[in-house]
Design a protein around this nucleic acid. Structure first.
Length: 967
DNA sequence: ATAACTCCGTA
DNA sequence: GTACGGAGTTATT
């Protein structure tokens, strides 16, 4: 270090406390971690370093270090046992931040200096002296009066919060003495916080006056008898020793045996990616963006650093455990993540009781102001009030924002005036146009540094994508709840508000009314809509504050981040693409089905001897089992005769004429009403395609569900039903690709239960059901009778479903005893499966949930029910959930990875549908053969790199013009 | 108009 | 025996 260099020394420990107390309590925490002080610290460092590069602004550091207290025990405790003994333990939500601030320092690539036995102030004094001796200048980043004794010709201070330089004149102005007399002044005044005694009755003003008069402390104490004021004179004489001791305590040592030499503090260029990785982990979105811009790094390509956090008192911060606090900490014990989460939940519940403050935004300028505030805040809750539940058809009626200060803004854009005819009049006055509003909102909604929190964010994602806006990054409280509490309750916004806020939210129907008097959403009043929507979005933000921290606390972050959040955009894209269906094919099929059903109806009336509603199980039962006297089988739970296909099949096998005809009629009418008649109604008027909607949080196991229309139950098993798949087609010049996992659930079972024969069979690629049959019944695989294989197949499926003798007997139409025998034999051959089932049930009984191979949880509290039927049902579900759920996780991973894999291979293929173990794509003719291996490879390796499976995954894929041919 | 029930399509 | 959604009928509000 040389003359002209400039050393910056940051008082890290002092800053932590100031930042913590300067920031409002709830505002800057995230992800379970209170990070307000860390945020303040990072922003401060960034500002200092930015100025460092910008030579126009102020002084520029050439050397830089952040200094911390190591512990509260220093040489001063040897001088005076009571030193700092008054200090209480730091606030509990500050404790985890001590370690994080050191992490932050390292992320900024700055030296992080602390030393046992010395306070940060002593180290600062030592470095300041060394710099001075080298001819360099020093700036101490702090406003602590304890450091002001160091201010002089080459050393100054800077208060980062007030943006104020502190030099000699500032010290004199504030304390009435020059810096070199600060030690004497503090010796007289003492410090109640640090428990420095000083002299009673002497404050800063008196001390300064006395020092002015006598020059220094030694002279003052020597000539104390000259002091006129009686009380003051006696106090000084009586407490002279205390004053001398205090002087030793406040005097900083500038001879600490430092390890890092001055030259090692030289300021290096910033490592952008390293810093961004840390900032992302902390979720400091605004700063991440700023750093990315300044360092020209691509923030989206950088993965958040994983940070180990010490939550408890082990995280050594200053001032913990200096004698008097020991009892305190013993009572308090370590602060667990769960404690913090519970505190947060309570705080939010209280806050949620307050009335929701909202404003209606009718002008662009006000909206722009709001957007600026939201951008600055970095976090907002968001919702679109839409005219329909279908995002492909809905119009935007209004948009609602809620900021972290709890204030909501409702932006009406699609309200209609109610004063016109049945058409509902035109757009109402006094609202921003949808186009203008979205133009203004687009930068905010696409800003990578602003988190957009919603409930069912996929809906808003699709709505906005239809209008050229890419909602990013989204957070979704429905998915948070699904990940955290699957199986313990509903995940609707109303249910979450009731559970977490003790609050009854109104539902949309209360806004629009119901039935005959229902009013379309767009015709509701802006005031009513604003009230309704503000409540929802306000609640969304409050619920997020409770749920988001739980993610880290309960170890569910990776499930949420890897299996849920990325699917919002992936599924949103699939829903928007839709799939082409051929109206003519369906119409022709409908005609055929109608004719054939009508023929059956005539025959049925003939046999029954009267006309009746064949579709009514009640009427059918009366005729079949009453009038015709056919001996009935089972009854339904309401006491009616069952007319299920299984019952009718058995009667048909006994030679009865009517049941067969009913079964056939039902199949035809089912296909007609559910598929060939219904599907054309879902063709979108603009895209001419069918757009299903996937529910991400509907199933207990992690599977998706599909509705409106459900494209996960398109027929395939019968030749008649399969014809419907010929209507699902690729447009001219395009192909559909169907790629499906072969036996994925049995493979998952072989993996988790680690069954040698099963693993071997899958590795060898042999027929798994035949292998099972061969093991169980000691018959060779070659030339195996189909009936034997069929039974083994049923058993294999039964295992996955948490087998019961009753169920297997039903499935195979065999006596319960025989089914029981099969199961016994199966477990003899595969004892590992029985072990797996038992340990899964035990795990669930102990923990209340089971988990998939990727850590997704499914809760089954009723596994302890006293009702044996309920209990048994929950046991079977608990056995099935890890298997079904792990398979669901695997295909979710494949879907998340698919886009990048196709892009990397330079294949243009559009993922359209997911059917649990199958993905459907659409590609140009020329691309089809190139796409298939990429798709296969991605699906087969989808578990990697998170998990290496003990069983290979196998995918069959084919391209064709229709779904029927491709599958 | 809504809810419950039965039945049946898929993985 | 697991997991879903939808159509149609019937009962209830």
């Amino acid at each position: 270090m040389k003359k002209g260099d400039h050393l910056f020394l940051v008082d890290g420990s002092g800053y932590i406390f100031r930042a913590y107390h300067a920031l409002p309590p709830l505002s800057r925490k995230s992800d379970g971690l209170p990070v307000g002080a860390v945020a303040g610290f990072c922003n401060m460092l960034w500002k200092l370093l930015k100025n460092a590069r910008d030579t126009d602004v102020g002084v520029t550091p050439t050397h830089f270090a952040v200094i911390f207290d190591y512990s509260s025990k220093t040489f001063r405790n040897a001088l005076y046992g009571e030193y700092k003994a008054n200090r209480t333990a730091p606030p509990e939500d500050l404790v985890p931040q001590f370690g994080l601030i050191r992490e932050a320092t390292r992320a900024f690539d700055l030296p992080c200096i602390e030393m046992e036995g010395f306070e940060a102030d002593d180290l600062i004094a030592t470095y300041a002296r060394l710099a001075c001796e080298a001819g360099a200048d020093t700036t101490i980043i702090s406003s602590d009066k304890d450091l002001m004794q160091l201010v002089g010709a080459t050393t100054q201070m800077y208060d980062p919060m007030k943006d104020k330089q502190i030099g000699v004149p500032e010290v004199i102005e504030k304390w009435g003495v020059p810096p070199e007399k600060m030690i004497d002044l503090q010796a007289l005044t003492g410090d109640s916080i640090d428990n420095v005694p000083g002299v009673p009755g002497i404050g800063p003003k008196t001390a300064a006056q006395l020092l002015e008069e006598f020059g220094d402390l030694d002279t003052l104490l020597m000539r104390a008898s000259e002091i006129k004021q009686n009380k003051r004179r006696e106090n000084i004489i009586q407490h002279a020793d205390n004053a001398r001791l205090s002087r030793e305590l406040v005097k900083l040592r500038n001879d600490a045996p430092i390890v890092e030499q001055l030259d090692e503090l030289v300021l290096n260029p910033l490592d952008g990616p390293k810093l961004i990785a840390f900032l992302k982990a902390m979720e400091f979105t605004t700063l991440t963006k700023r750093v990315a811009e300044a360092t020209e790094a691509d923030a989206s390509a950088i993965e958040a650093k994983s940070i180990a956090v010490e939550w408890g008192e082990d995280a050594h911060g200053p001032d913990v455990g200096a004698g008097a606090t020991t009892q305190d900490t013993a009572q308090r014990g370590p602060l667990t993540p769960a404690d913090l989460v519970a505190k947060r939940a309570d705080a939010v519940k209280k806050l949620a009781k307050e009335p929701v403050d909202h404003t209606i935004i009718r002008g662009s300028q006000v909206l722009a102001d709001w957007i600026a505030a939201a951008t600055e805040s970095g976090t907002l809750a968001f919702d679109i009030l839409a005219s329909s539940a279908d995002p492909m058809k809905a119009e935007i009626v209004g948009l609602t924002l809620a900021l972290e200060n709890g204030i909501c803004a409702y932006i009406p854009v699609g309200h209609h005036s109610g004063d016109s005819d049945l058409l509902g009049g035109g757009l109402a006055e006094e609202q921003i146009s949808e186009g203008d509003a979205l133009s203004l909102l687009k930068p905010l909604l696409e800003d990578a540094s602003v988190l957009k929190i919603g409930h069912d964010a996929k809906f808003d994602y699709v709505m906005l994508a239809q209008r050229g806006v890419t909602l990013s990054p989204p957070d979704d409280i429905q998915l948070l709840s699904y990940v955290l509490d699957s199986g313990t309750g509903a995940h609707s916004l109303e249910a979450l508000a009731a559970r977490w806020l003790d609050k009854t939210l109104s539902v949309l129907k209360e806004l629009t009314g119901t039935g005959r008097s229902a009013v379309p959403v767009e015709q509701t009043s802006m005031v009513a809509a604003a009230n309704y929507a503000s409540d929802l979005v306000h609640a969304t933000l409050a619920i997020w504050r409770v749920l988001k921290p739980r993610l880290a606390a309960e170890g569910m972050t990776s499930v949420y981040e890897r299996l849920e959040r990325p699917l919002i955009a992936a599924l949103g894209a699939m829903e928007q693409r839709g799939i082409e269906i051929d109206r003519q094919t369906l119409s022709r099929l409908s005609g055929e089905l109608a004719q054939r059903a009508a023929a059956f109806e005539d025959e049925i009336y003939e046999v029954a001897g009267e006309r009746f509603n064949i579709g009514s199980p009640k009427q059918l039962g009366d005729i079949l089992f009453g009038k015709m006297g056919v001996p009935g089988g089972s009854k339904t739970k309401t006491g009616q005769w069952s007319t299920s296909a299984q019952v009718l099949e058995e009667l048909a096998a006994e030679g009865h004429e009517l049941p067969r005809k009913i079964v056939d009629w039902r199949q035809l009418t089912k296909l007609k009403s559910t598929y060939t008649d219904a599907l054309p109604g879902y063709i979108h008027p603009r895209t001419r395609r069918v757009h299903t909607s996937y529910a991400m949080a509907a199933t207990s196991t992690g599977r998706l569900s599909s509705s409106e229309p459900n494209l996960q139950n398109i027929p395939i098993r019968t030749a008649e039903g399969r014809k419907i798949r010929t209507a699902f087609i690729a447009p001219a010049g395009r192909k559909l690709i169907s790629a499906d996992y072969s036996q994925i659930e049995l493979r998952v079972l072989a993996h988790v239960a680690d069954i040698p024969q099963l693993r071997q069979a899958f590795s060898d690629g042999v027929d798994i059901h035949a292998m099972t049959a061969s093991e169980m019944f000691s018959v060779p695989v070659e030339g195996m009778p189909t009936e034997i294989r069929r039974r083994a197949k049923a058993i294999n499926f039964g295992i996955i479903y948490g087998i019961s003798a009753f169920g297997l007997a039903n499935q195979l139409s065999i006596p319960r005893e025989e089914a029981s025998d099969y199961i016994k034999r199966y477990f003899e051959r595969f004892p590992g499966i029985r072990d797996y089932m038992e340990s899964t049930k035990n795990f669930c009984r102990e923990n209340g949930y089971v988990e998939t191979i990727f850590g997704r949880r499914a809760h089954y509290p009723d596994i302890k029910a006293s009702n044996p039927q309920i209990r048994a049902f929950n046991e079977r579900a608990a056995i099935n959930a890890p298997i079904q759920g792990s398979a669901a996780d695997i295909i979710r991973r494949a879907m998340v990875q698919m886009d990048a894999a196709l892009q990397a291979a330079k294949v243009k293929a559009d993922m359209l549908l997911q059917v649990h173990d199958e993905l459907i794509f659409e590609v140009d003719d020329a691309e089809a053969e190139k796409a298939i291996p990429v798709i296969r490879q991605t699906m087969e390796s989808a578990a990697m790199p998170a998990l290496s499976m003990r069983v290979p995954l196998h995918v069959d894929a084919r391209a064709a013009n229709s779904w029927d041919e491709a599958h």
